[in-house]
Structure formats: structure tokens, C-alpha cells
Design a binder for these strands. Structure first.
Lengths: 129, 129
DNA sequence: CTTTACGTTGACGTTAACGTCAAGCAAAGG
DNA sequence: CCTTTGCTTGACGTTAACGTCAACGTAAAG
């Protein structure tokens, strides 16, 4: 039994992007799918990386930041200094994400109070227009 | 007593952006500061909008989405249909933000488990190199 | 009265993240 | 064998969000 593989089209359709996008991600080194001759073959690890990339995009990160983030997970951690560097990078990432979550929570609570105001206005206006 | 005002440079410095950025935001209608002759005068409401814009940017929203968001707060809510439209928009926004927060939480917990792995590696290596 | 400092409006340049062709190879079906 | 289908690599186009001049107005300072 062999591990499953996918074509570029299957991957693109499944992840809701174009093949051009996937090729672009390979161009800038975000993924490096296997080749059979000239044709790209995608394995599970490529899918994993793509999920990480797309989540990064949903969060609004630029692709080069996304690269440093997901490369962090694959970075060599043999020497102590390397490990400590990785740990410091983790802290930076975490600070960034926590700040974003604060921003989101702020925006959400503003939305809540604004919705309250709208609903009050709506209750004060039970007619048709 | 009169309400305080600011120049474009004061605003730019305080918010950590360039004057070009602020002018750009005016070009695309995100802010519309007062004019005294040709010179821009910034009031408190301009600062409020700028905070909203910059938070939107930290969250990775494009400027045109940011426009629809903050214009939502100023949208006319006179008629019932308008109010209901605004309320539906609020729901959409909230869904988006909640999804982003999910993504952030996922990323954060991945960071946590990854940090654990790193710390385990570090403990297993109490030497200097 | 002329610098100096700060403001203004064009207008072209730049980077990121792809879109959109064109031209060609390669396997598979009729 | 020919056509269709799907993949490939260029290479140029596009949009967003400004950067970066240039050329000009103006008000205060020496």
C-alpha cells in the first residue's frame, strides 16, 4: 500500500484556490511538491503546509511572514542556541497573535454595543417604514 | 473654549504613519478632514476613524472592506429596512471576526504544543552546545 | 525681504499576490 | 493517427497601498 497523492487541480479545487496560486506558492518556496518528470505530485505534507498558508492568509499575514512562520516548524533544533532562537521566535509570534485577538475582541464588543443601539431604534419603530 | 485640532504631521506622528498614508486615506474617502483654505485640519472624529482604520489594518482587512465597516457605523438608520440591513451587516462582520479568532486560537495552541516540544528537547540537552 | 519650515497637489514608481494569456509537451480516447 | 484534456513554463498585466519625487503656496523667523 502506498500513500495517497493528488494533482495540482485536485489540490486547487479542494482548497478553493487556482492552480496559478499554487504554482506561485511553489515559486516563492512555500511548498515544494514532488515531481514525476515535469508534473507536480502532491503529498499529505503539501496539504498540511497549504492549510497553514491559507490560515495565515485568512489572518492577513503576508506570504513572506507566513514563510518564516511555517519554516519555523521545520527549523533545525539540534544545537542549544538554535533551540533558544526558535523559542524566542515562538514568543514573538505569540505576542503578535495575542495582540490580534485583542483587536478582534475590541471590534466584536463594539459591534455588540452598536447592535444594541440598532435594536433599540428598531423597537422604537414598530411600523412598516 | 474650542475643541482641539491637529495638523497632518501631528496626526501622522502620533499614529505612526506617514502623511502620504493619511492623504491616501482621504483620497479613497476613508477620512475627510476639515480644510482651512487648502490646509487640512484634524478633529477628534478624524482620530477616531483613524484608530478604526489602523485596527482594521492590523487585522489584515483591505482598505475597501475597512471603508464599508466604518461607514456602517455612520450609515442612515432612519427607515426600518435600513435598520434591518445594518443588522444583517453586523451579523456578517461578526461571523468574519469570530472565524478569525478561531484561526488565531488554533495557531496559538499549535504554538503551545510546539513550544512544549522545544522545551523537552532543551531539557534533554543541558550542555552548552 | 529672503530663507526656512510645513503644507499642498499631481504624477510616476514599487511591491505583493496573483490573473491572464501564449506556446508547448504528454497521455488517453475515438 | 488525430484530437481532446491536463499539465508545463514563460512572460506580461493588474490591483492595492502606499513611496517618492517635483513644483508650488504661505507663514513665521532672522
Amino acid at each position: 500500500m502506498t500513500s495517497p497523492t493528488w494533482t495540482i487541480r485536485e489540490i486547487a479545487d479542494e482548497f478553493g484556490v487556482t492552480t496559478r496560486t499554487i504554482r506561485h506558492y511553489e515559486d516563492i518556496g512555500l511548498i515544494s511538491p514532488e515531481r514525476q518528470g515535469t508534473v507536480r505530485i502532491f503529498h499529505r505534507r503539501d496539504r498540511t503546509r497549504l492549510s497553514l498558508i491559507l490560515r495565515g492568509k485568512r489572518l492577513g499575514f503576508p506570504l513572506d511572514e507566513i514563510a518564516t512562520i511555517i519554516n519555523l516548524y521545520d527549523a533545525p533544533r539540534g544545537r542549544r542556541s538554535q533551540l533558544e532562537y526558535v523559542l524566542s521566535q515562538i514568543d514573538e509570534r505569540r505576542e503578535d497573535l495575542v495582540q490580534r485577538r485583542r483587536d478582534i475582541d475590541d471590534a466584536l464588543s463594539e459591534l455588540d454595543t452598536f447592535e444594541q443601539r440598532c435594536r433599540t431604534d428598531l423597537d422604537a419603530r414598530p411600523d412598516a417604514g
